[in-house]
Amino acid sequence: MTVPNMITVARFLLVPAVVYWLLTGEWMMAFAGFVIAGISDGVDGLIARRFNQRSRLGSYLDPAADKLLLVSVFVVLGVLGQLPLWLVVAAVSRDALIVLAIFLSSLMGSPVEVRPLMVSKVNTAAQIALAGVVLAELAFATTFGPMRPALIIVSGILTVASAGAYLVTWSRHMNTHGEGGPQAGR
């Protein structure tokens, strides 16, 4: 268990706290927890690279912790009416479809290498920015003008684009590596 992995585990443990603070209206605490999680994500990556503490476990834990926090915050903000439900459903569905595709590929004996696409990285950045803006608006009882609506639109477009890109990539992989080709199992 490396130092970066311990930091990542702490980030996992921070998720229920952030969710609790959101559900109880403790906006400043929720915002602070979200910011601390973001900073810890950067710190664990820096330590892993700088001190050669990269690990296979960390390569799975780190993105899982990030995704758990972001999905949890999105869901709760949707339930609280702070994000449109269509966006929450789109974001959660996209992630569920990716996990399902990875699972199916492995189950069919054709595991797909998980590599984030550029559109996915931009999508994640937009979703993090959106969650951060909403949490900051709640924590500081302010609004940032058109920033939230703009980020909602951008996040929605990027979520759909990312889901489509992953679907195309997965379909190509399965047609190339799947058992018996594209007609197998029909």
Results as ranks from 00 to 15, higher is better:
A101M: 06
V88G: 04
Y60I: 15
L70E: 08
G109N: 04
P63Q: 12
L77W: 05
E113V: 15
A64L: 14
A90Q: 07
V88T: 15
S120D: 02
V114H: 03
V122G: 07
V92T: 14
I102H: 04
G81P: 10
D62H: 08
A131Y: 00
V119F: 03
I128V: 15
G132L: 09
L80Q: 15
N123R: 10
L69Y: 01
L97N: 06
L107M: 12
E113N: 14
L68P: 05
M108S: 13
L69T: 04
V114W: 01
V133Y: 03
L107N: 08
P63R: 06
A101H: 02
S93H: 06
V79C: 03
L130I: 05
L68E: 03
Q127T: 04
V79N: 05
G109F: 02
V122A: 10
D66Y: 13
M108T: 12
W86A: 13
G132V: 04
P84L: 03
N123E: 03
L80E: 11
G78D: 08
T124V: 03
I98S: 03
P116A: 12
V119P: 06
L117C: 08
R115D: 07
V92S: 11
E113G: 09
S120C: 11
G78L: 05
I98E: 02
V133N: 04
M108W: 09
Q82F: 11
L130M: 10
L107Y: 14
V119M: 10
L68V: 13
I102Q: 05
I102G: 01
P84S: 05
T124K: 00
L83V: 12
A91D: 08
D95N: 12
A131H: 00
M108Q: 14
F74M: 15
I128L: 13
L87K: 00
W86F: 14
P63E: 07
F74N: 09
L61Y: 05
V79W: 14
K67F: 03
L100P: 04
A91K: 00
L100E: 05
L80I: 09
V76P: 00
L130F: 05
V114N: 10
G81E: 12
A96F: 09
A125K: 04
E113M: 09
G109E: 04
V79H: 10
I98N: 00
V89F: 06
G109D: 05
A125I: 05
A96T: 14
L107I: 08
V133W: 00
A96G: 15
I102V: 15
L70V: 15
L83I: 11
V99W: 08
I102M: 13
L69H: 01
D95V: 09
R94I: 06
P116V: 12
K67N: 10
L130Q: 01
V79I: 15
S93M: 13
F103T: 13
A126F: 01
M108K: 14
Q82P: 03
V76Y: 06
V122I: 15
V75L: 14
M118P: 11
L69W: 01
K121R: 13
M118W: 13
L104V: 14
I128Q: 06
D95T: 13
